[in-house]
């Protein structure tokens, strides 16, 4: 169960990485004809959160940076016990992630090993289904465990027991009230996710447009999937991190996919696509744009879908 999942009856637009001139986000804001202040969540930039002058300039509209990273530092100073408990929880979640990854690797290794056996295609297909099913089970189990830990934590630390956080949330809600659109930038995906949750940003946000890029797009989907086929330590298997806010259902967002994924490896791509089904695994490369209206995917530009047969389906549209 995901307690964070929201419904949004308006426009949600997901983008890929933005260069210094922020062309896609600016074009999107112009097309949406946003004429009022825009709320910015730049928490993914962490300690550089306030370096938003380039973005402000490109948007050429009034903006209000919600400063969620700085606010969280303020809460940390004021609520020492809460932060100590939070830190312990994060350590526990990291440990769970490590154990989940160990299990994933052994299933994926077995799948790769079975796939090269000399057996009939029917038998191999049946075995692939078993492997995919095991991977899906692990993913779901991991998400459930993470959700349970978060839920327990939220019960242990009700907002009413945290006056500093409560007042910060009220301030954020007030700032959001004045805004016509919300932009969530890329950066550190956990930093974005946790700050949005901590300050309950979507609690008072109605159907006004939301634009997220890269990490900011990932958190708007149902599941956040970490992926990179060429990390500095060699190889890596895609892993679910946590649930997102679910504003963009049936989508796994893959920022900068063309650079991060070995697109010529049909076997792993096919397994990944089946593992994530029925969600579509879609690229958010520079220039990509995926639009949701009333919770439905309505338009996909400059993207590609990873298909179950391992093909990269460039130009796919819903």
């Amino acid at each position: 169960m995901n307690t964070d999942e929201r419904q949004h009856e308006g426009s949600v637009i997901l983008l890929g990485p933005q260069s210094w001139h922020y062309a896609d986000v600016t074009r999107t804001i112009n097309e949406l004809d946003i004429d009022g202040p825009i709320a910015l969540v730049t928490a993914g930039w962490q300690e550089n959160e306030s370096d938003d002058s380039g973005l402000q300039k490109a948007l050429d509209r009034p903006t209000i940076n919600l400063s969620l990273h700085a606010r969280s530092e303020g809460v940390a100073d004021a609520e020492a016990d809460f932060v100590a408990a939070w830190t312990l929880r994060q350590k526990h979640l990291r440990r769970l992630q490590e154990f989940y990854r160990i299990r994933l690797q052994s299933i994926d290794k077995a799948a790769g090993s079975i796939a090269v056996r000399h057996a009939s295609s029917e038998l191999l297909e049946e075995q692939l289904e078993i492997s995919v099913s095991q991977l899906r089970h692990l993913d779901a189990d991991h998400l459930q465990r993470c959700a349970t830990i978060r839920e327990r934590f939220d019960n242990d630390w009700p907002i009413s027991s945290l006056p500093s956080l409560e007042s910060q949330r009220e301030e954020v809600a007030e700032e959001l009230q004045a805004c016509k659109a919300l932009i969530i930038t890329g950066g550190h995906v956990v930093a974005v996710l946790n700050r949005l949750r901590l300050f309950d940003v979507f609690a008072t946000w109605d159907d006004r447009p939301i634009i997220g890029w890269s990490a900011g797009a990932m958190v708007l989907t149902e599941r956040i999937v970490l992926f990179h086929d060429s990390p500095p330590f060699g190889t890596n298997l895609a892993q679910v991190l946590d649930t997102g806010f679910g504003l963009c259902p049936d989508l796994v967002a893959l920022p900068d996919m063309s650079r991060r994924v070995h697109l010529d490896q049909k076997g792993p791509i096919g397994r990944f696509s089946r593992r994530m089904a029925p969600a579509h695994c879609l690229a958010l490369d520079p220039g990509s744009r995926i639009r949701f209206e009333d919770g439905k995917m309505t338009a996909v530009e400059e993207s590609a879908r990873l298909d179950e047969d391992g093909q990269v389906n460039w130009g796919w549209t819903p």
Binding site: P17, G44, G186, G187, H188, V189, V190, A191, S214, A215, M218, L226, H228, P231, P232, F233, G234, N236, L241, P255, D256
Partner: peptide, 18 residues
């Protein structure tokens, strides 16, 4: 060293989506 250290202690690299 890059491969060894980043494998033993993965940084936020996998979390970064700019």
């Amino acid at each position: 060293l890059r491969e060894g250290l980043s494998w033993l202690f993965p940084g936020a690299f996998l979390m970064m989506y700019e």
